[in-house]
Amino acid sequence: MKKLFIFLLTIAALYISEPIQAQDAKDGDALIGVWEPSHGKARIKIDKIADKYYGRIVWLKEPKDPQTGEPKLDKNNPDESMHSAPLRGYRMLKDFEYQGDGVWVEGTIYDPENGNTYSSEITLKDENTLDIRGYIGMKTFGRSDVWKRLKLK
């Protein structure tokens, strides 16, 4: 009887906490959408996979490499096997987890310009504006950029 009571209590606790978790997940999903960095050279679509958020390049202002005339490739990637991978479609934001209060943490951001991957944190400034910070080790050693939400026509 005691075991049954503990079990039911656990289930009840799970049911009570579920709406809170659901609300968190809903708030976290505010990140989902298409965004444009301040330089305007790319558009990034952020999606949720399992409980984490990922962003891939879906549009490039200059989709072709001026040297070759072919679609731009990830030729600055330190992993040489990626040099033939097209930049469009590349997953440049990875593994962001929603911390709450409009902040996503524990992610990484890849800079195709120099092939470096930085630790990253995203803050939702308003529903259509992101503050995205890439940093090395400590947040002090980093730089922030403002991204704006886009709507498909």
């Binding site: 444009e36 879906v58 469009r88 259509n128 504006t129 704006k148 939400r149 886009l150 498909l152 026509k153």
Partner: peptide, 20 residues
Amino acid sequence: EIDWAAYGEVEYAGGQTKSY
């Protein structure tokens, strides 16, 4: 499959970002 062309026709949901 992603319809890449769809992301060429967009508008800003809020204001536009100023580039620096």
